[in-house]
Design a protein around this nucleic acid. Structure first.
Length: 304
DNA sequence: TCTCCTCGAGATCT
DNA sequence: CTCGAGGAGA
């Protein structure tokens, strides 16, 4: 299904189409499009727009009217999807499509276009939700209105097509700046996206260390899932006290910090390969300390 | 060291 | 769906 769908990509082009649709529900196989909206951007500025209500075959539920403000009266004189969707797609052309959780919109467009025109919608797309999660991990959630709140973007008339389109597009501009600020540059962000954070890529946030700290110059390896903190954060803390991080047990390893292994697929409470490897090295006389997360926390807080 | 795989957890869209 | 963690194999 959806064989010729475009690919989800990460990027910050200056030419693209931002879009948003409203529907009668969440499921593309049973629900219908009731509004289409798009903004064509050229050289980073809004060049043209497209907006239209769409008349569905079934009536719009009270819940959806409450949510979007779109009533059955409003769509009674609107075009059917089979007549307006091809125009919409013509407006989009071959552009990269941008939107918040745009995969949702793409699926509705793909299925409807296939059904009424036997054509595929193969445009590549940039899902701003992915960029938001990577860029603003500290937010409590990554719903569009929450992100707009963070960037002080106006959310008046939220859940109408053109407004959501504008909101997402404004957020896109903000991501550019935040990404450049937090990752050095958009190019660096794109390069790192989707790659595991390797221990060797970590750098300390300062260059002066207390050489008496128990983790100073100690090589630390993590296994399992930590509680209340991501592995990346933990590695950062180690770096910041002058320690070093590695992804695998070697002759250089000093500490193995063990998180919870119960969520891991092929482990199921058993020992991970890193633990087994560490125990082998210990038998050969190497001094690897296998410690729990709480012991790790104690070491960090130790004042010398 | 690198790429590709599996699995479970956790969100977001209307 | 996307992501992180760990594993297998080259």
């Amino acid at each position: 299904m959806r064989e010729s769908k475009g690919r989800s990509i990460i990027g910050f082009p200056s030419d693209y189409v931002a879009l948003d649709i409203e529907t009668t529900g969440l499921d593309p196989s049973v629900d219908e499009i009731i509004e289409l909206a798009a903004i064509r951007v050229r050289d980073g500025v809004r060049a043209d727009t497209f907006a239209s209500l769409v008349k569905p075959r079934n009536t719009i539920s009270g819940f959806i009217t409450e949510l979007t403000g779109i009533t059955n009266d409003m769509v009674s004189g609107a075009p059917r999807v089979e007549s307006i969707l091809p125009q919409f797609c013509e407006f989009i052309g071959g552009d990269v499509v941008v939107g918040h959780n745009v995969n949702f919109d793409i699926n509705f467009i793909y299925d409807n276009l296939m059904q009424c025109s036997r054509r595929v919608f193969g445009n590549d797309f940039i899902d701003l939700l992915r960029i938001a999660r990577k860029t603003l991990p500290e937010l409590e959630n990554h719903r569009l209105d929450t992100i707009c709140g963070h960037f002080a973007v106006d959310t008046t008339a939220h859940h109408r097509g053109m407004r959501d389109c504008d909101m997402a597009n404004e957020c896109f501009q903000h991501y550019r700046e935040v990404v450049a600020q937090r990752f050095g540059s958009t190019d660096e962000f794109i390069r790192m996206f989707g790659h595991k954070v390797m221990a060797r890529d970590m750098t300390a946030a300062k260059d002066h260390f207390n050489e008496e700290h128990p983790l100073f110059n100690q090589v630390c390896v993590f296994t399992g899932t930590l509680e209340g903190m991501e592995r990346r954060e933990a590695m950062q803390v180690v770096m910041n006290v002058g320690g070093r991080c590695s992804d695998q047990i070697t002759k250089e390893t000093n500490y193995l910090i063990v998180g919870s292994l119960e969520y891991s697929s092929n482990i199921r409470g058993n020992k991970s390969s890193k633990i087994l490897k560490a125990e082998k090295y210990v038998l050969k006389g190497q001094d690897i300390k296998v410690i729990s997360q709480s012991t790790f926390a104690d070491l960090l807080n130790e004042q010398v």
